[in-house]
Design a protein around this nucleic acid. Sequence first.
DNA 1: TAAAAATAATATTAATACAACAATAAAAAA
DNA 2: TTTTTTATTGTTGTATTAATATTATTTTTA
Lengths: 245, 245
Amino acid sequence: MVPQIIPNISVDCVVFGFDANTKSLNVLLLDRYLESEENHEILVNDHVLTGYHTLENETIDDTATRVLRELTGLDNLYKKQFKVFGDPNRLMNEKDLIWAKSENFNQRTITIAYYFLVKTHEVDLENNQHKPKWFPVNDLPELGFDHKKVINEAYADLKAKSLFQPIIFELLPDKFTIKELQDVYECILGVEIDNRNFRRKLLTKKYLIELNEKQVGVSKKPSQLFMFSKDIYQKIYKESYLISI
Amino acid sequence: MVPQIIPNISVDCVVFGFDANTKSLNVLLLDRYLESEENHEILVNDHVLTGYHTLENETIDDTATRVLRELTGLDNLYKKQFKVFGDPNRLMNEKDLIWAKSENFNQRTITIAYYFLVKTHEVDLENNQHKPKWFPVNDLPELGFDHKKVINEAYADLKAKSLFQPIIFELLPDKFTIKELQDVYECILGVEIDNRNFRRKLLTKKYLIELNEKQVGVSKKPSQLFMFSKDIYQKIYKESYLISI
DNA sequence: TAAAAATAATATTAATACAACAATAAAAAA
DNA sequence: TTTTTTATTGTTGTATTAATATTATTTTTA
């Protein structure tokens, strides 16, 4: 028995990953490509987020988890449902209409948008049938539907959330250096941070565990590796009531 | 021509108001009442949030605005779309099933939840055909569907947001005292705040305009009235990049 | 008119956190 | 051994917060 899809409700997933080499926050996108049958003219050639319709008898969260597992093979990722996009005219540009026609989307669909944080090195793009690719969030290619807007809203939410929730560790390997942590903050927030002040502040945190290991295979002084302890974080976490307006 | 509703997509609205007398954050709820036709046995008698289905050709935001206008007569309210509730089993308790049957809800509906901030004194409950009533958010009555969960998630979001966005002024009259402002913060955050420190901190803010007016009709030393200038706030607003984890 | 009652309004200090700044140490590579 | 590269460390001034009690102003009451 094939599970029924709900035709007017879908989930779109913004997958964020951090590239330590280019120091860039990236988004995972799929190609959207269509040729005409007659003369092989290229009708649509741009990119989209990954998404799918919700199935009957499946929670929206489950839809998002399923889509991500199918795309990346990964489970247990940080996931945030951040906004619904339901403008009746959200599929109104020319390419979207051509695409919708070829795919038999003809009714109004609202989409529930999630973002995911993944450790880039854990995603295997080579052996992936969907051929997703990473693109810098600050230099996105041409995108279908309202997906540029969706990505930018996800990014804004991530930015705000990163300031007071320890979600940034989801983007780093299990073992990381203080400098790498700073790189991610600088990249996401788009600001420069004084290394001395940052280091001093973070080194006081009990939830950063200093390992008995240093970097290997680097052509310089290798730096100290740390890991993040979610357990300790949650134990010492205190809700802040500091009014900052 | 009657506008078509989208049968499986609805909007639910959590309306927050602050009662200065009881110093309570309240939620506006509707009665849900049903008798059996045979013996007038009471089948359902509890409360629900206000909500309605989205119409074709209407954005989700417009649905929420429309529902609120119909309920309160008010427009231009602070509005936040904060979460989608789409569990296939969200209408699974006995009373919900009886109700759904009587109203011909028989398919899975997902609801997009908003919260609104209103100035309690601007809402006229007397001449309102829907007979909404205020209930303290910390002492809610029996609620239908998953509405208790919806309210609690709205409250959590409001709490977090009130710390770094000037949304609290939406709950106060245009002219207010520093003490009233403190009352709202204490009530929403559920903490006590030292009046001396709070007052000193807030009095330095340029966006709080001291009026040439004091309270009238109070049996005590009348206190100074202030207003909030959104314009000034936005001019002097600086994005914070302070990492607080 | 004076006293009482109630709440508004205000100051100081110690502790903590932040911002701004440059020099030294350690390891690998040449 | 020297060079190169990056990791690592400290100080000081400023701002913010937290913790504390008293005085001032107005209405009400006697």
